[in-house]
Design a protein around this nucleic acid. Structure first.
Length: 490
RNA sequence: GGCGCAUUCGUCUAGCGGUUUAGGACACCUCCCUCUCAAGGAGGAGAUCACCGGUUCGAAUCCGGUAUGCGCUACCA
């Protein structure tokens, strides 16, 4: 029988969910769903000092937002509970003691101050930094002397001094390390919490994890984990180290590259379907041409063989393009519904709330094709909502026109529009097109002047449709206001 | 410094020994459409496959070295 696929996403709640971590979660989730296995979420909250309030909630919210459901973990529990490492401290202590008893690990009494000095000295002498193993072979007498000093020891792993440790990475193939390059790393900290190395190995075994898919930055730690499995006598899972996601300058993606947390992308108005699609393609590909791919297709086609070995740069412009594609693919109703909260939050305070749903519904078809993000909807549609337009008066004078011509165009437009009963796009066009000819203007000139008068912008959705949505009263008022502005300017 | 991983258009990538004059996408440029902006359509430019050797009848594809980049080198994950 083949071992069932059980993969885990094991974030540490030390900050807000980084897109790199979320990508790792996605690959794990896709792997689990593709192979009909289990996706487990485990919270690695073993660093008390770096803990960030609200991080776990943000993380779980992000997973839900992207549609990554988990079979075991926080909120849902599971047969290997608890899924918070801070609630499993007894297990780690017991496991560490087990290694001490069999002499695979030992107590270390060195102070952090001494360790720091040691490291500084090693660096000064251009030696590879690493624990000098002072406590590795303490005699019983030495040990009891240390015990009396009232310092809480840490537990260190007794790394084999010679030979090699290797393993087969599912993405990179055979990887081998000399044990001599590994030092005696800490397993249990003096505060009673385990380090990542101990906790992840113990839990991955106890939780019957079959595949460890994690970021490449863990590759160098893999031999340590391998050694731990050996010392415990556990069957190790399969390992695959995923390529990293970098910023535009090829450095690890960080705050100075802009948005790095998935929650920021949500707030900026990127669609969850965009993020899933985009993140999936950062390090994985289906073939030589597929760019747009749904979650279902991803699940159906995901495999580790098609995961790239090279770090990928996060291409913001491609993300924008893709989000535009997804926005345009939405039904108008869906788009309006998703845009509404952004408008509600982003429109100026003087705009009356609640926003009229019907009016918003008329505006959105004009905006949908032009928005790359939901947040952009605010700026693109603002003129529909505010009362007084603020723009540079000179914009009313289209290219090739002078002030008099613009004034005349506004006056004539006002007059003919005033007479009209019907104010739909079609009849508007029927009035204004002939008017341009009558005025001896190109349509672009007349429409440009009117566009600025009516929207305050030089770039906006098509004039007639815009005017129709705005309504007769508001349009006439704005054209009049434009006239006054221009007249005053003289 | 040590160890590890990687190296195809600016970027994401396809390619897994001959089908390749290296394919697609974003961005960029030109044209078309057009009341502006978008969207859309048609083209274009852009990669001596990091470099040097080797294996082979034949290499972007296999091997070795060099260079460069990245990661790790904590009582952080």
């Amino acid at each position: 029988m083949v071992t069932p696929v059980r993969v885990r996403f094991a974030p540490s709640p030390t900050g807000f969910p980084h897109v790199g971590n979320i990508r790792t979660a996605l690959f794990n989730w896709l792997y689990a769903r593709h192979y009909k296995g289990k996706f487990i979420v485990r919270i690695e909250d073993t660093d008390v000092t770096r803990k960030v309030e609200g991080a776990i909630e943000a993380l779980l919210d992000s997973l839900k937002w992207l549609g990554m459901d988990w079979d075991e973990g926080p909120e849902v529990g599971g047969k290997y509970a608890p899924y918070f490492q801070s609630q499993r401290l007894d297990i780690y202590r017991e496991m560490a003691e087990r290694l001490i008893v069999q002499e695979s690990a030992y107590y270390c009494y060195c102070s952090s101050q001494r360790l720091e000095e040691m490291r500084a000295e090693q660096i000064k002498r251009k030696q590879p930094p690493g624990y000098d193993r002072r406590c590795r072979d303490l005699t019983p007498e030495e040990r009891s002397a240390k015990e009396k000093e009232d310092i809480t020891p840490v537990v260190r792993f007794k790394t084999p001094l010679s030979s090699q440790t290797g393993f087969r990475d599912l993405i990179r193939g055979e990887v081998v390390f000399d044990n001599s390059t590994l030092d005696d790393f800490v397993l249990l900290k003096s505060d009673g919490y385990p380090t990542y190395h101990l906790a992840s190995v113990v839990d991955d075994h106890l939780m019957a994890i079959s595949h460890v898919l994690r970021a490449e930055e863990w590759l160098s730690s893999a031999p340590r984990h391998r050694l731990l499995y050996q010392a415990f006598g556990f069957e190790p899972p399969q390992f695959a180290h995923l390529p990293m996601i970098l910023g535009a300058d090829r450095a690890k993606l960080s705050k100075r590259h802009g948005a790095v947390s998935i929650t920021e992308y949500k707030e900026l108005g990127y669609l969850p379907e965009t993020m899933v699609n985009f993140l999936a393609l950062l390090g994985w590909s289906l073939d030589d041409r597929t760019e747009l791919i749904s979650r279902q297709e991803l699940v159906a086609n995901f495999s580790l063989e098609r995961v790239s070995q090279t770090a990928a740069i996060f291409n913001q412009e491609k993300l924008n393009w893709m989000n535009g594609v997804y926005i345009r693919s939405l039904s108008v109703e869906d788009f309006a519904e998703r845009a509404l909260p952004f408008l509600d939050k982003g429109l100026p305070a003087e705009v009356r709330r609640p926003l009229a749903k019907k009016y918003v519904g008329e505006i959105m078809p004009l905006i949908q094709e032009r928005a790359k993000t939901l947040a952009e909807v605010i700026g693109l549609s603002q003129f529909f909502f505010i009362e007084d337009l603020d723009y540079d008066t000179s914009l009313l004078i289209s290219k090739g026109m002078d002030r008099e011509a613009a004034l005349k165009a506004l006056a004539k437009s006002l007059a003919s529009l005033n007479k009209r009963e019907a104010f739909d796009a079609e009849s508007l066009e029927g009035v204004l097109r002939p008017l341009a000819a009558e005025l001896g203007l190109k349509t672009g000139q007349l429409f440009g002047t009117l566009r600025v008068a009516v929207t305050g912008e030089t770039a906006a959705p098509p004039l007639f449709q815009t005017m129709a949505v705005l309504g007769k009263e508001r349009c006439l008022k704005r054209i009049e206001a434009a006239q006054n502005k221009l007249a005053k300017r003289g």
